[in-house]
């Protein structure tokens, strides 16, 4: 693969374990700039953990992650994050505009409050996801799809170069799914790199140009038309037990 090019994300020998159980084993992943990559694998394959490890939210037992050749801590400003919708309490007392403005907190720094500029950026992001009519809506009064759009808008105001999204299509309606796909493709057209945890195998070839097949170990990664083969899929979804047995190498 394009060895000479700069990598948007470079994961090397990454191993993550909870207690003694490996969740990710010796992962290598190179993501070139400007691709739309989906991470695909069965439940418990470590998809969310991989995203969190890239973001430094879980500490790896071994290995490291580079974003444009530098560790994540140095590159926070160019990385945007969309957590799983279910990871927060949507009954929290706040409204749509306020949640979107949280995407500016990193750039604002300590203590400074969001101003008119942050409000305008948040409004623009809400327009992009078609939620500009809901700015003052309490977030518990949104549908699942609308909540997901709010989270996307929050990532958009981060104005990042690399986006990491955890299951943005989870439990959303068809309209929202189309809107999100359009948005992802616009981001790619702008030269951004987007990594998406995805669970619907049917849509991988339609939505994404790159794919990573993951089941604790990396099965394969690369352009969809090369990697998304039935052999690789069978290996990802069918052979989990066999992997654990053959896997005795040291860290």
């Amino acid at each position: 693969m394009q060895r000479s090019e700069q990598k948007a994300i470079q994961v090397t020998d990454l191993t993550v374990a909870y207690q003694d159980k490996p969740v990710l084993w010796d992962i290598d992943l190179d993501v070139p700039p400007g691709v739309l990559l989906s991470i695909v694998g069965p439940n418990g394959a470590g998809k969310t953990t991989l995203i969190k490890a890239i973001l430094g939210l879980v500490r790896p037992a071994a290995g490291n992650v580079l974003i444009y050749d530098k560790p994540y801590e140095a590159q926070r400003r160019i990385v945007g994050y969309v957590p799983q919708r279910g990871s927060v309490d949507w009954d929290f007392p706040t409204n749509v505009l306020d949640v979107v403005m949280m995407g500016r907190y990193g750039a604002l720094g300590w203590i400074r409050r969001p101003q008119k500029k942050e409000r305008e950026l948040a409004m623009q992001a809400l327009e992009k996801v078609g939620m500009e009519a809901y700015t003052t809506r309490q977030i518990s009064q949104l549908s699942g799809g609308q909540q997901q759009r709010v989270f996307l808008a929050r990532a958009l105001v981060q104005d990042a170069t690399v986006y990491l999204m955890d299951e943005p299509f989870q439990g959303v309606d068809a309209t929202t799914e189309r809107a999100i796909v359009t948005l992802l493709q616009e981001l790619r057209a702008d030269g951004k790199t987007v990594v998406v945890v995805h669970h619907d195998l049917q849509t991988v070839t339609d939505y994404f140009d790159w794919v990573m097949l993951l089941n604790i170990r990396r099965i394969a990664s690369g352009p969809v038309d090369e990697i998304f083969t039935s052999d690789n899929l069978r290996e990802t979804y069918g052979g989990r037990v066999a992997f654990m047995k053959t896997d005795k190498g040291g860290v």
Binding site: R76, S87, V88, F92, M102, Y105, G106, I111, R113
Partner: peptide
């Protein structure tokens, strides 16, 4: 009051807070 926005984000979405470096 000084750490109002930081504490709010911590309570609402700790993962996101950590991802932006809080």
């Amino acid at each position: 009051l000084i750490f109002w926005k930081e504490l709010k984000l911590l309570v609402f979405d700790a993962d996101f807070a950590a991802s932006i470096g809080l």
